[in-house]
């Protein structure tokens, strides 16, 4: 059952990811990204992370990709990129080598420490506790909340700093340059 879910969602994830890097049109890329994000959300549910699955959809699909699409449409930068042009001859082989290298590295690492993973640990503490007394309906959310506000409370507060920076930064960047006193790119050619 979980295997079936894994295969379908995994296909969504990889298919979407390939779509992002292969499709020439930014809007199509964004839609492929959504496919990947949904696949990931499904995998989260399959691994008992319901809350994260919902947040993943709300934040990523509902906000981030919408923002991408919004920028694409607002700026009208939706012409397709010609993927046949390769500015640097070495770029693609190099990318392929690096990509395969990284994937190979991690997979090798994971497989060498395989014995840590293969025997499915049905007796992990949380699961063990769950089998003895039936878990609350929203056990996952409760655990997450408790962890968030006890062990990770400092990190949680730090995210607020992060959001403040994002807001201040966007306000700073969104200001238009005053046309009256715009300085050209080369001050030497500008009438001083």
């Amino acid at each position: 059952m979980e295997l079936v879910v894994f295969i379908i969602a995994g296909a969504m994830v990889i298919g979407g990811a390939l779509g992002v890097i292969i499709r020439s049109h930014p809007v199509h890329c964004a839609l492929s990204l959504v496919l990947t994000l949904f696949g990931i959300a499904v995998l989260f549910i399959a691994q008992n992370a319901q809350f994260l699955a919902a947040v993943q959809v709300i934040v990523y699909a509902g906000a981030i990709v919408v923002l991408f699409l919004f920028v694409i449409m607002l700026l009208g930068v939706d012409q397709a990129e010609d993927l046949r042009i390769e500015p640097f001859k070495i770029q693609r082989p190099l990318a392929a080598v690096v990509g395969v290298g990284i994937v190979g590295l991690i997979i090798t690492a994971a497989i060498t420490s395989r014995n840590a993973f293969t025997p499915k640990p049905a007796v992990s503490p949380a699961v063990a506790a769950a089998t003895t007394n039936p878990p609350l309906h929203d056990e996952n959310i409760r655990q997450l909340a408790r962890d968030l506000f006890s062990d990770h409370v400092f990190a949680f507060e730090l995210t607020s700093v992060l959001l403040v920076i994002a807001v201040v930064g966007t306000v700073l960047l969104a200001r238009r340059p005053d046309r009256a006193q715009a300085v050209t790119t080369d001050a030497r050619k500008a009438p001083v």
Binding site: V27, A54, V57, I58, A61, A63, D138, I141
Partner: peptide, 20 residues
């Protein structure tokens, strides 16, 4: 268990139809 969040998620998905 995440019922209400599902509502939010779906209402945020609804943007796509109109936008696209």
């Amino acid at each position: 268990p995440i019922g209400v969040l599902l509502l939010l998620a779906l209402s945020s998905i609804a943007v796509y139809g109109i936008m696209l």
